[in-house]
Amino acid sequence: MEEVPQGCPGTGSAQAGRGASCQGCPNQRLCASGAGAAPDPAIEEIKEKMKTVKHKILVLSGKGGVGKSTFSAHLAHGLAEDENTQVALLDIDICGPSIPKIMGLEGEQVHQSGSGWSPVFVEDNLGVMSVGFLLSSPDDAVIWRGPKKNGMIKQFLRDVDWGELDYLIVDTPPGTSDEHLSVVQYLSAARLDGAVIITTPQEVSLQDVRKEISFCHKVKVPIIGVVENMSVFVCPKCKKESQIFPPTTGGAEVMCQDLKIPLLGKVPLDPHIGKSCDKGQSFLMDAPASAAALAYRSIIQKIQEFCGHHQPKEEHLVGS
């Protein structure tokens, strides 16, 4: 975690980005652009909207291609197996919305109701919202600048009729940019439980994931824990383990020990996961006895326990 520069006035100060200590800071322009600005009224509107949502979980990773959307989908499927648990999955990966495909909802459209947009439902207790539902074709490119992305995230949180929910899971794109700042800003006052961070074992992935952990510390998002995805491959014939992505620096386990954050578990690389996602089916239902499904269930249980024991605070954070 990086230290706050000495003399930093803070993002909420009228001197943010303008003080003598701000000279040379990489965030100077970002802070100056929001310094002294009135809080976005949407923050309070979203806070009011989210009063019916008990737990809000972000799924993050600094790295692309590590399985955030796959994990988000199976976290939603796993939680929704209890018919008494109401779950929603929000896809804020604006430029690469893969949740509609993974959840078997490709080609579905958003419906407008008197109380806002209605989520698309997989099951009676599992709703989904994604920019993919707003495109005329899955092949359409979303070529938007930051402000339009932020506006769409604001609309998803404020204008969707989420109803009474036990869990809202937010699937994010890679990185620490516009979408991440927006969702943290808008949910900061609405009691955000925390983030699950996804990585794969190799150092090139962990390098980016450390940046995501630093981001969480800076914007005061609690870290529920880290999931190491694609951990090992077990040959279905000889049962021999192979490391497709060698953990040259010790993988997520050593990283978590160094940074003193929880390792929620390791999910083995299983080709059936990809097949289930391509078919829009739950891998947990397709291969319930597999090592990967058992790993998912153990991780989901730990997330449930965290949400049950942890009382998130109301805070006004980034940009407020």
Rank of each mutant, 00 (worst) to 15 (best):
residue 51 K to W: 00
residue 223 I to N: 08
residue 5 P to N: 04
residue 69 S to I: 02
residue 175 G to V: 09
residue 263 L to W: 12
residue 200 T to A: 01
residue 1 M to I: 10
residue 15 Q to T: 01
residue 6 Q to R: 12
residue 267 V to C: 10
residue 210 R to S: 12
residue 185 Q to A: 10
residue 282 S to N: 05
residue 190 A to T: 02
residue 41 P to N: 12
residue 136 S to D: 15
residue 169 I to G: 10
residue 287 A to F: 06
residue 33 S to H: 04
residue 286 D to M: 14
residue 215 F to N: 06
residue 55 H to R: 15
residue 319 G to N: 14
residue 316 H to V: 03
residue 271 P to A: 10
residue 92 I to F: 06
residue 129 M to L: 15
residue 174 P to T: 08
residue 316 H to M: 13
residue 58 L to D: 02
residue 111 H to S: 09
residue 79 L to Q: 03
residue 68 K to W: 05
residue 151 G to V: 01
residue 313 K to S: 15
residue 318 V to Q: 00
residue 84 N to M: 09
residue 46 I to K: 07
residue 255 M to S: 01
residue 142 V to S: 09
residue 227 V to Q: 07
residue 171 D to H: 00
residue 90 L to S: 11
residue 97 P to I: 09
residue 225 G to T: 05
residue 125 N to V: 11
residue 312 P to H: 11
residue 115 S to F: 10
residue 5 P to I: 01
residue 286 D to P: 00
residue 222 P to T: 07
residue 222 P to G: 05
residue 200 T to N: 02
residue 213 I to H: 04
residue 276 S to P: 05
residue 292 A to N: 12
residue 33 S to N: 09
residue 220 K to M: 10
residue 272 H to D: 02
residue 26 P to S: 03
residue 250 G to E: 10
residue 223 I to E: 05
residue 52 T to N: 13
residue 210 R to I: 09
residue 215 F to S: 08
residue 101 K to W: 02
residue 270 D to C: 06
residue 13 S to K: 04
residue 52 T to C: 08
residue 108 E to D: 04
residue 84 N to D: 15
residue 141 A to M: 13
residue 189 A to T: 01
residue 54 K to I: 05
residue 245 F to D: 02
residue 25 C to L: 08
residue 302 K to Y: 03
residue 251 G to K: 08
residue 147 P to Y: 01
residue 287 A to T: 03
residue 278 D to F: 13
residue 152 M to N: 00
residue 318 V to T: 12
residue 145 R to A: 03
residue 303 I to N: 08
residue 294 L to N: 14
residue 140 D to G: 01
residue 36 G to W: 05
residue 298 S to Q: 13
residue 129 M to P: 10
residue 207 Q to L: 14
residue 242 S to C: 03
residue 239 K to W: 00
residue 149 K to P: 04
residue 175 G to N: 11
residue 287 A to G: 00
residue 299 I to A: 01
residue 129 M to G: 04
residue 15 Q to C: 00
residue 22 C to W: 03
residue 306 F to Y: 15
residue 289 A to W: 02
residue 15 Q to N: 14
residue 298 S to E: 15
residue 210 R to N: 12
residue 157 L to D: 13
residue 268 P to S: 02
